[in-house]
Computed example of a mutant assay.
Amino acid sequence: MIHPKTAEEIELMRESALVVSRTLGMLASEIKPGVTGLYLDRLAEEFIREQGATPGFLGMYDFPNTLNISPNAQVVHGIPTDEPFKEGDIVSVDCGSLKNGYYGDHAFTFEVGEVAPETRKLLQVTRESLYVGIREFRAGNRVGDVGYAIQQYCESHGYGVVRELVGHGLGKKLHEAPEMPNYGKRGRGKMFVEGMVVAIEPMINMGTRRIRQLKDGWTILTADGKPSAHFEHNVALINGKPELLSTFRYIYEALGISSDEEAEFRQHPITS
Rank of each mutant, 00 (worst) to 15 (best):
A199W: 00
K215N: 10
V20Y: 11
E164Y: 05
I69K: 11
N72S: 08
P55W: 08
L174C: 01
Y61V: 08
V19P: 01
K86E: 15
E201V: 12
K86W: 09
C154Y: 02
P202C: 10
A149S: 14
G37P: 09
N141G: 04
G189P: 03
E50T: 11
P4H: 12
R120C: 02
E46R: 15
L245E: 03
T247R: 04
D89E: 02
G195P: 00
G256Y: 06
V143N: 01
L122Y: 03
M26V: 12
S246G: 06
I48E: 09
T6I: 09
K185Y: 10
L170C: 13
E15N: 12
P80S: 03
L12E: 14
L237P: 02
A229D: 00
V125Y: 01
R14A: 11
F57E: 10
P242R: 01
A149W: 05
E87H: 00
I204Q: 02
F265A: 11
V35T: 14
L12I: 07
G96S: 07
H230K: 06
G169A: 06
P64I: 10
S246K: 05
E264R: 14
G169W: 12
K190R: 13
V19E: 04
H106F: 15
G160K: 06
P181R: 10
V20F: 05
P55F: 09
V112E: 01
P181W: 06
E45I: 02
E232L: 13
F110G: 01
G104L: 08
R138V: 13
L43N: 10
N205V: 01
P269E: 07
I204C: 08
D224T: 03
T126A: 05
V197N: 07
D94N: 11
N100E: 14
E194A: 04
Y131W: 00
G144K: 08
D216V: 07
V76T: 15
L174M: 15
N72H: 01
G217V: 01
E243S: 00
T81H: 02
P202S: 04
H230G: 00
A107T: 07
C154M: 08
K226P: 00
E164Q: 14
P84L: 07
L40M: 12
T208D: 13
Q74D: 08
M180C: 01
V197F: 10
H230Q: 02
E243M: 03
M203K: 15
P4I: 11
R212A: 10
F137M: 10
T81P: 02
G207W: 09
S92Q: 06
L214Y: 10
I150K: 03
F137G: 01
E15K: 15
D105W: 11
S21V: 09
R120V: 03
Y183P: 13
V112N: 03
Q74K: 09
R212C: 11
E111N: 06
K226L: 14
K121I: 03
M60C: 06
L24C: 11
G140I: 06
E11W: 07
G189R: 02
F192H: 02
G34V: 05
H230T: 07
R209Q: 13
A177G: 13
A17K: 08
G225T: 00
F248E: 15
H168D: 08
D260P: 06
T36M: 12
M203R: 15
A139T: 11
